[in-house]
């Protein structure tokens, strides 16, 4: 069984079909790209997967479990995490608080032991602190743990958002244009980071990206979305030479 199986997924807003008849399969540990021109419906796919939107038709199976009707938090709890195209950090909180919130769903102590500060409160908080610091260390953010998130430079905010998503301990990570707004050097570093995350955390990644070099460089398989439909799929080499893709990206250079 694949880790994620999207079957004939469709979404209409009023009369507009944003996504139609979408089929995607992702196996354990795969790194998959989802590309397409502006307005092709890529982010809508993420919103459908994570329960932000309710699909009009079709089904999503994750770890063989039907995801229909699940709320975003339930989707996350079942092992799917995401980042946003426009960064959505808890911007007035510190870096470490951002990550601790991601660990909340795995927290071990009850409200009662929080009220009364029972031993399980201290144990739970210490464990969270330790795990959050470990994660920040991996992302080179441990020195900034106590800094307020909105004061971080843009690139670090992106990294923090990925770190925070990993804090939910996902099996599948959805990255929505992680390289948006980054310069080539930062994009290059990000590419290495994404590869490394996949191995280190033993998870699958679905990546939405505009930056062709990033997608072609890291993804094993790529789906191309245009007007809400998959127009091509395959390895980076196959995609590069696919006339349909070139047509969809007319004017844009496919590396």
């Amino acid at each position: 069984m694949p880790l994620l199986k999207i079957d004939k997924l469709s979404k209409s807003f009023g009369g507009l079909k944003a996504v139609s008849n979408l089929n995607i399969e992702i196996n354990d540990g795969e790194l998959i790209g989802l590309i397409g021109p502006n307005g092709a419906g890529k982010t809508t796919v993420f919103n459908l997967l994570t329960g932000v939107y309710e699909p009009t038709e079709g089904s999503v199976k994750f770890q063989s479990k039907d995801m229909r009707g699940l709320k975003p938090y339930q989707v996350t709890q079942s092992g799917m995490a995401r980042t946003f195209q426009n960064i959505r950090l808890f911007s007035d909180l510190t870096v470490i608080e951002n990550v601790k919130i991601a660990y909340h769903q795995r927290s071990s102590y009850s409200t009662l032991s929080a009220f009364l500060r029972l031993p399980s409160y201290y144990a739970g908080e210490e464990e969270m602190q330790r795990k959050a610091m470990e994660l920040l260390k991996i992302f080179n953010l441990e020195d900034k743990a106590e800094e307020v998130a909105k004061n971080l430079p843009y690139g670090e905010q992106r990294r923090l958002e990925i770190a925070r998503a990993l804090g939910t301990e996902p099996k599948l990570l959805l990255l929505d244009e992680p390289a948006a707004g980054m310069n080539p050097q930062e994009t290059h570093d990000l590419m290495n980071l994404i590869r490394w995350i996949r191995q280190q955390f033993n998870l699958a990644i679905l990546l939405i990206e505009h930056d062709m070099s990033l997608v072609m460089g890291v993804c094993e398989r790529i789906y191309v979305l245009d007007y809400g439909m998959i127009i091509a799929q395959g390895t980076p080499d196959e995609i590069k030479n696919n006339p349909k893709v070139i047509e969809a990206y007319l004017g844009e250079e496919v590396v």
Binding site: R88, L89, F90, L93, A102, H104, Q105, Y109, T111, Y121
Partner: peptide
Amino acid sequence: NFIKSTHGRACISIRENEIAADVMG
């Protein structure tokens, strides 16, 4: 005590950004 626990942080995350909180589980 409530505020300074993981449950309190969950509440704060709603104030900060409800959609992000939801997606963080």
